[in-house]
Design a binder for these strands. Structure first.
Lengths: 188, 188
DNA sequence: AGAGTCATGTCAGTAACTGACATGACTCTA
DNA sequence: TAGAGTCATGTCAGTTACTGACATGACTCT
């Protein structure tokens, strides 16, 4: 018989989301989360640098999809590359994930510290996209602006996708939002 | 003789920036800041909700400038209104403020928690701009995208302005960056 | 002169996070 | 197959951010 159950990291993340949804982020202590996962507080902090971080597991995989989308494209125009990144990343949000994404969003929007962490992750994503564009010989300022515009589009599409009334798949919504941005700025 | 010196809030902010610059944000305790300002830790928390917040005094005034810029414009096109907001907010950054802005930036970029707070303030600014645009009968999605694009432009202009090599005034830089964005997206 | 206001101090408590060391099942090797 | 590691976890003590409750004493108003 093994001394420790496997999957400690995942158990912690699952317990955390459950407890946050039920009682709120602030009213849940790390010790509680750990206990619910059959572990101690100290072990929690070996897997997650801090309490907010437990809601951001899988971020690397997510970011990787954007970058893979850029690598797969052969265009040399910044917004084409961004569009390719957005399209490829859309596979991260199949309809099966919608319910889970909704409860996660409820928790994140309910707490300022979590909202700040989310913004930071989006900013890191924009930085990664910028680097990828610069590596494609796009000038740094255009790269940064295009990357940030792309992240704006993603965020708005995500917000729409997790709306209760929305039924369209993620990629459709996102293509829509992207087009609205193009119209907005080219009708100058 | 007065029992308390006046300007406690400002003394705390000044002591904090000095100590953060000298020793770093994390290696400076709130008790230290308070002592340097001739106060106690408890009093610090009566003025600032938490330790990061002490670097964000004046945020309301700053945000107010953007909104005033929108109110002063008579255009009905989103990007024109955003341009007016940016132009008006540029008065917040006269050349005398450059040195101070540089040390503040050094502190903020040197710490993740501070960077997160900064992103949150920018996000709040974008939300305020969005509301102002919506109040001008611009459709919500266009308003949000335009506001976020505007904040992107501001951030990039600010980063350039506090660069050591840069000598142009803030408003010139910002108009430049805005034009680059327009070119980027209309040359699609 | 006495009552009230208000900025600050004092003190005790909670919870996030960290470093140092202990434990015991598992693996590898002589 | 014994003995030596390895490694995920536990235990414990400490620091610091942040909060609530109550005390203090100069100033103001009547």
């Amino acid at each position: 018989m093994a001394r420790w159950q496997s999957g400690a990291r995942e158990r912690l993340a699952a317990s955390a989301l459950e407890l946050f949804s039920a009682q709120g982020f602030e009213r849940t202590t790390v010790a509680e989360i750990a206990a619910a996962a059959g572990l101690t507080e100290r072990t929690f902090f070996r897997y997650y640098a801090d309490k907010p971080e437990v809601l951001f597991a899988g971020q690397d995989e997510f970011e990787g999809l954007f970058l893979a989308g850029i690598e797969a494209s052969t265009s040399t125009r910044p917004m084409d590359l961004v569009a390719a990144a957005l399209d490829h990343a859309a596979t991260f949000f199949p309809d099966e994930r919608r319910a889970w994404s909704r409860s996660r969003r409820d928790v994140v929007t309910g707490n300022v510290a979590l909202h700040e962490r989310e913004l930071h992750k989006m900013s890191a994503l924009a930085d990664a996209l910028t680097s990828a564009l610069v590596a494609r010989d796009i000038n740094p300022i255009a790269a940064a602006l295009a990357a940030e515009a792309g992240v704006s589009v993603f965020r708005r599409a995500f917000a729409a996708w997790v709306n209760d009334k929305e039924t369209r798949p993620f990629d459709d919504i996102q293509r829509d939002v992207l087009q609205q941005l193009q119209v907005l700025l080219s009708s100058n």
